[in-house]
Amino acid sequence: MSAVELRARPSTRFFRSELWLIFGRRRNWVGMAVLAAVPVLLIIAVKVSPPGGGGGPDFVNQITQNGVFAALAALTLELPLFLPVAVASISADSIAGEANLGTLRYLLAVPVDRVRLLVVKFAAIAVFALAATLLVAGVGALLGLAVFGGGPLVTLSGTTLPFWAGVGRLVLVCGYLTVCLTAMGAIGMFVSTLTEQPIGATIATLVLTVGSEILDAIPQLAVIHRYLPTHYWLAYTDLLRDPVSYDQVVPGLWSATAYILIFGAAAWARFAGRDVTS
């Protein structure tokens, strides 16, 4: 019997292993390739047939003047479904995927404390949400600049910002959307603690997200709109005004924080004492 006292050292190894599990998986590469394909297609389409003005969404019309707008246009196109699908599949896989494979019991026997497991899984979901957003924006901005060149950014208020200030606004938009998507990831992680079927958890998370978007589109339900998880997502456009309007962005950040705390706590309540029989 070794009487050696085992001491747990703070370590980022498990977190890094988790990131590697997400970003090293071929299935996720395919998903990220799809995310990256949207700005590429958009830029090709605009190059082949430049918009005649007035027709498409605002951002698309401006791509020819400033390539950075390709990033904003691509984010706008992917926000209703593609980005939520990506985050839902990763977050819903977090616990249910391990339970489904049976690796959950071996992680817990290592031992990995259950709270630590949730924290690491959630942190990895947040990193993925950031990576997915930056991927769409990055591909759009770089390819847009390469094809159409840079230029001043015309804000939604009609004023003009110098090029680098415009890039700064794009970074703010990415940050805001990352927080919004991470809140959705917290919901997905909670759903993931309820089942051993990652596909079912993914679908349930998407139903909640798209369902929230649908409810948000029904004017008669205005009283509940501000409590919906997706209600403030489109507030990112306020970051493109001059001066920036925080009327919707700040409540949006509070809403996301509340969703993260509530569903993080719910995941803990569900998972901490659960019998792992998978």
Binding site: L6, R7, A8, R9, P10, S11, R13, F14, R16, S17, L21, Y106, L107, V110, V112
Partner: peptide, 13 residues
Amino acid sequence: LRRLDAADRTVEP
């Protein structure tokens, strides 16, 4: 095995 080892905070990395 690397993943399981990474999850153990009491071992020498």
